[in-house]
Amino acid sequence: MVNNESLENVVLELRRGVIVLAALSQLGNEEYGYSLLKKLADLGLEVDQGTLYPLLRRLEAQGLLESVWKLEESRPRRYYVVSAEGKKLLPKLKKEWAGIVSVMDKMLA
């Protein structure tokens, strides 16, 4: 019998693999960290803040995202959006993902 902890760890690993694609796919328009977090949760992907924020910084360092600070409701917010390079990469990632889903569907059928 698989214990809950093992199940949680495997699910966590599976989710971790898709967060990059999920974040890039939802940043066609500017979002700040917390709004992206809520957007992903509303779509059914719960992501920990401790995972998302460092990931956004890493993607920006890789040139796939751009960010800008804006002052809203007397509060500064950092907005992220997919960069030109990220836009080029996204269709390729989507294709890869479709391939993975197709293969896994066959395996799990």
Binding site: Y32, G33, Y34, S35, Q49, Y53, R57, R77, R78
Partner: peptide, 11 residues
């Protein structure tokens, strides 16, 4: 990072 963290916590 500090500024973004504060902004997130306020949100």
């Amino acid at each position: 990072i500090e500024k973004e963290l504060k902004s997130t916590l306020e949100d």
